[in-house]
Amino acid sequence: MHTDDFWHLIDDARTGAVDDEDHSDALVRLLAQLAPGEIIAFQRRYREYKALSCTEPLWAAACLVNEEADDEGFDRFRDWLIGQGRDRFEAALADPDSLATATWDAQSIEDAENLAYAAPDAYRQLTGGELFLPDVALERAFTGRAWGPQDLPRLLPRLATRVGRTV
């Protein structure tokens, strides 16, 4: 699936959605209109973006946004970030502090996890079968955090100010 097609599907599903749960439901409906191979290609692309967003600077941003630093919270944060669309995603990759201008709440980040299941759900609806992709290590291995919670306001000053965390 071409990059533009992927992001158009993400954006089209968000149009008219009242929350992140609606967004994922709309994405399932859009994907279910595609051929099975296109749904698989979408899921591959989704996993690529999820892996691309597995960076220490974005983990630091997730700690501020989510007020937690565990693996599950970071995973949901990256689903939410993908769901925000290409411009926000690419801006956050380049500068995680740019998320200071984003809109979120704890529920929207939690509900965004459903985006990760949109392609498998659509594939199941369309074919009756399970979408299976080999479990390839797409996550980047961290060598250890180069920061601690006390460093977050220095690393991401605008985002830290936005969430009320200052030095």
Score class of each variant (00 low, 15 high):
Q84V: 01
D111M: 12
A62N: 06
D71G: 01
A61K: 09
T101C: 02
T101H: 04
A60L: 13
A91M: 06
A91H: 05
L64R: 05
F74Q: 15
P57A: 01
A91T: 06
D87R: 03
I82M: 03
A112V: 07
D111V: 02
R76K: 14
T101D: 10
Q107V: 08
G83S: 08
T103L: 05
L81G: 07
R78N: 09
W80S: 04
D70C: 03
N114W: 14
A61T: 11
D111A: 14
A112F: 07
P96N: 14
A91D: 09
D70Y: 10
T103H: 05
G85F: 00
A116S: 15
C63Y: 02
W80V: 01
G85W: 00
D111F: 09
R88V: 15
Q84N: 11
T101K: 01
W80L: 02
T103W: 00
D71R: 08
E56F: 03
L99M: 15
W104E: 12
A102F: 00
W80R: 03
S108M: 06
I82Q: 10
A94V: 02
D111L: 12
C63A: 15
L115F: 04
R76F: 13
F89R: 13
D70H: 10
W59R: 15
E68Q: 14
E67Y: 07
L81A: 04
E56C: 00
W104P: 14
D79S: 15
A91L: 11
A92Y: 04
D87C: 00
W104G: 07
